[in-house]
């Protein structure tokens, strides 16, 4: 009996293999690459978060002293630990940053997409020009806006204070609480064209008959947008919100390049989770703490994405 079961299992494997041989061959290189560069590092990453892995124990690799949840304690709670410095600032900043940037880039993208949905001369060129800010590399975005936000010589202050007289004196953008705006605005600037592109494609897929029906019913433009356009496009903008949430929480390049090119500290209102982890790992050389913080970040992200997915399923079912 048992032998028979094994054989049938073997047979079924053989059957599937012969049937999907090419599929398996096709997927094999990707599978190997992902095994080596995704799966193995991730498992190690989880394990490393439980090790006292720093500059001194680096050579021992996975044989470094096992400290259990000591790293998590050090990072989150232990008041004596240097790794804990600024972690709550980083968490707060990341929440504000991620939230506002995601909303900002979707909103700006939506507004411009609605404008671009009009047919006018040179629309393709205008769209291309809009897309330019998305092509600028993120590290350049950081350098460029860091330069533009300089207190006395930056063009932002020159425009705001010297030309438009909106403020009485030139504020410091890269010091103090203003920093959070100084990192949010460039990120929105860099990423909104992508949202615009997706939303524009989504807009063009909304059937014209719905708008015609709304027009006949005498609905206002405002109402038409919220009752037809917005819900019809929910698959698009929800995907954008998901990607925005993930990418902005893991945002690194813009912030690190804006403040002394990685050598400088972004300050209490500019530090993000990723810059915090990177500093702990590759400047203070405490990889255990870095891994522990990224594990925490991942757990939060999984919860958020799960929450998002449930909501997404609901909208999928409606439409």
């Amino acid at each position: 009996m048992e032998a028979q079961v094994t054989r049938t299992k073997l047979q079924s494997i053989k059957y599937y293999y012969s049937k999907y041989k090419i599929a398996y061959y096709f997927i094999l290189p990707t599978a190997i690459a992902m095994l080596l560069m995704h799966f193995i590092p991730i498992v190690q990453g989880f394990y490393m978060s439980l090790l006292r892995l720093n500059n001194f124990t680096l050579n021992q690799y996975l044989g470094a002293p096992f400290v259990g949840f000591g790293n998590f304690y050090d990072v989150m709670i232990n008041p004596a630990s240097p790794m804990r410095i600024g972690i709550y600032d980083a968490i707060r900043n990341t929440v504000i940053y991620s939230f506002l940037v995601t909303i900002g880039q979707t909103a700006v993208g939506m507004i411009v997409a609605l404008m671009m949905n009009y047919d006018f001369k040179g629309r393709g060129l205008v769209r291309t020009l809009f897309m330019f800010s998305w092509i600028v590399p993120t590290y350049v975005t950081g350098i460029l806006w860091g330069f533009m936000f300089q207190q006395s010589i930056g063009i932002v202050n020159i425009i705001l204070v010297d030309w438009l007289h909106l403020l009485s004196s030139k504020p410091f953008w890269l010091v103090g609480m203003n920093t959070i705006w100084a990192i949010i605005i460039p990120t929105i600037w860099r990423f909104w064209p992508f949202s615009m592109l997706m939303l524009l494609a989504g807009l063009q897929n909304v059937p014209q008959s719905l708008y015609d029906a709304a027009k006949i019913d005498g609905a206002s433009k405002w109402k038409t947008f919220w009752k037809i356009t917005w819900p019809m496009m929910s698959p698009v903008w929800m995907i954008l919100v998901l990607f925005g949430m993930i990418y902005n929480t893991y945002s690194f390049n813009i912030v690190i390049m804006m403040f002394g090119n990685g050598a400088g500290f972004p300050g209490r209102w500019g530090d993000l989770m990723m810059t915090n982890i990177f500093r702990n790992s590759f400047m203070r050389w405490d990889f255990g703490a870095g891994a522990a913080t990224s594990v925490l970040l991942l757990i939060v992200m999984v919860i958020l994405v799960n929450f998002w997915y449930k909501h997404y399923k609901k909208t999928e079912e409606i439409f």
């Binding site: 193995i40 991730i42 990453g45 490393m48 929480t249 893991y250 990177f278 999984v302």
Partner: peptide
């Protein structure tokens, strides 16, 4: 979903 630094450290 996984932060890139979680790959980078290992």
């Amino acid at each position: 979903m996984i932060p890139q630094i979680m790959y980078l450290i290992p």
